[in-house]
Design a protein around this nucleic acid. Structure first.
Lengths: 206, 206, 206, 206
DNA sequence: CATGAATGAGCCTTCATTCAT
DNA sequence: AATGAATGAAGGCTCATTCAT
């Protein structure tokens, strides 16, 4: 990596956390620059404006998180194993890139105001992958007919909420003893719980 | 209702949609005032500052949405029926008050920055309710041991994502044919899918 | 005048000198605000943005300068007297409003980038007035056939250059003794010279 | 010309049009560099800063335009012929170098802020030349006593305004049919009109 | 009470200039 | 000599908030 790449990457990394934590409107170019140890004008020179920076961060987060996602589908596993892999992959992607779930949630909230069309395409690809798995399971006679989007959002929703709710559950006294999160960004225990629940949810009743 | 209350209510109603759609930082006092047909200074006179307005809106949304939630628990139904009722109640609350899921998601994203302690208490109450139901089901021998938080977030996550993803799925071409949402804020078909999936997910395997 | 008018007027007055002396790009909102003893945001509240301020200043200067110009034409004087009156009127307008010639010159230089269509209309009105006078003189047999635009620009050009060149002629040593301007913004001696020259220039040769 | 000179000349040429069209404050070093196909730092290395670039452009324009102006005066023509030549020369200079009138007007507007003393000297030289012509005409008994500066500004003013008003007259609808400029930077018809008018204006009445 | 007007602080962005290679 | 990258200092504009009537 030459110096240029490194400065851009530093900006992206810092901007990602700021956009994720404060949103597009809440993020401050000043603070991003300062935290990235670059001159503010440098961001404009290297990247463009706030909107361009946001778009780059969003795409980068998604690519890094779900870029190699189609690999799961192409394997020659059983539907059940594929679904497990699918969930595991999402979990690992979110865990590896904790910015991603936040940015995706923010995009949904703002009705995709800053979401590039390509981003939507990536999500459709994921849904298609899940559909294929569910269909295969149905053909194998192990999965019931279930709605792809519902299952997808159960997985995603549960994981994202688990992740984003952790700080609050630690912070607010009301949660003091009862519902404390396990340590870690997305603990294995949570992934297991979700996997178990989803596998049951799609399973064909005898 | 006297005039003052009605002014406040109008402000709250407008502010709710703005905070939900644009976030705390994205919402503009100017626009809220104009859309509520009140003078900007009137908001400050009647309510306080932006933060106070946000807090009021947040609490109001939650109270209206989940204020009477404990009623479900006190009934004398079976665990399965109670869980169905629990899901149905959440669905109805979210549907009746579409601002609520958005504000809750935003709160999670900002790590509860504006969330009052009472709000956290309400959520704990809900979780306690769900725990009671799940315990009852376990005692009845129909539910397996499952994690309350995971199940809660599956329900909530799926519903919220369904709701907030609708506009994007309509808007972005990538979703053109395949994953179009059913009409309505939170269609019955979606509620049914979620209910079915959750019931299976907690069900004890024989 | 109520207070509101007075603040706007103060802004306009200061802005006029700044736009005239520094041009649109050279003028600074900061300095205008400070010199007008108003908060910078106040300009935006009262008027809009820089472009709007400029347009207002430009129109105001023209209206104040040439607003009542058509009166000259409607009189029942001889062509010669009318032309004298025309020149006198322009001279008085420019003298009364020294901002005007500068702004008009700047507009020409920037190819009317900020010039509203109405402004152009006003100039056409002036030219029409001059054309009428010249035609009348031709019919009376005292004026030769001359180009309206040329005569107009001779009058205007001479006056404007006299006015705007004064500071330089005073400042630069090269002009030390010879070509010093008479005192005053647009001295009567200059007006007389121009009037004499123009009257000769249009006069029919016998 | 070696390479360095050619680079400088390219920069000067582009900078001239930019300074003329946008003014000192409106001109952008970035755009000048890009349009001149040189690196921005190259301008600073070769010439200095913006102010130095402007000064160079101004002087160059004047030298190219009026450098060999004194030749007119030294000829042995009649006063009338000399005046015609004087006007023709100014016209040709302006036509050959359309940047010049714009820059001179801008200098006047900014009260010679960037005008070097030598520049003022050149203008005085021109005025002296005109004075000599007018004096000669007076001695010959063909010219009346007239003010040099007034005549100079009539000539200059009329030409410059004709030139700089052309784009506006073409652009603004208000001028649609009536006052359209003849084609060309400074059409011969305009020069003829001005020459005719000026000759009359100075002519001795019998 | 209600409201039009005012404002200080801050935000995004640009620009002339310099640095480092 | 030449250039891509970097930057300090503004500049235009906005926004939450307060003032004054």
């Amino acid at each position: 990596m030459n110096k240029k790449t490194s400065i851009k990457d530093k900006i992206f990394a810092v901007a990602a956390t700021h956009f994720a934590n404060f949103g597009f409107e809440g993020a401050r170019m000043d603070k991003i620059a300062k935290e990235a140890c670059v001159n503010k004008a440098s961001i404009y020179y290297n990247i463009g404006n706030k909107e361009a920076l946001y778009a780059k961060v969003l795409n980068k987060a998604f690519d890094e998180g779900f870029g190699s996602f189609h690999d799961v589908i192409e394997s020659s596993l059983s539907a059940r194993e594929k679904l497990e892999a699918y969930i595991r992959h999402i979990a690992k992607a979110l865990e590896r890139n904790p910015i991603l779930p936040k940015m995706m949630m923010r995009e949904q909230l703002s009705q995709g105001r800053h979401m590039p069309e390509s981003f939507a395409g990536n999500i459709v690809q994921m849904l298609d992958g899940l559909t294929a798995i569910l269909n295969q399971g149905n053909e194998e006679g192990v999965f019931d007919v279930v709605d792809t989007v519902t299952i997808h959002f159960m997985i995603f929703g549960a994981m994202m909420f688990q992740m984003t709710s952790s700080p609050i559950r630690k912070k607010k006294k009301a949660f003091s003893n009862k519902y404390q999160p396990d340590p870690g960004i997305l603990p294995q225990s949570v992934i297991d719980q979700i996997t178990k629940a989803v596998l049951r949810a799609v399973k064909k009743e005898k």
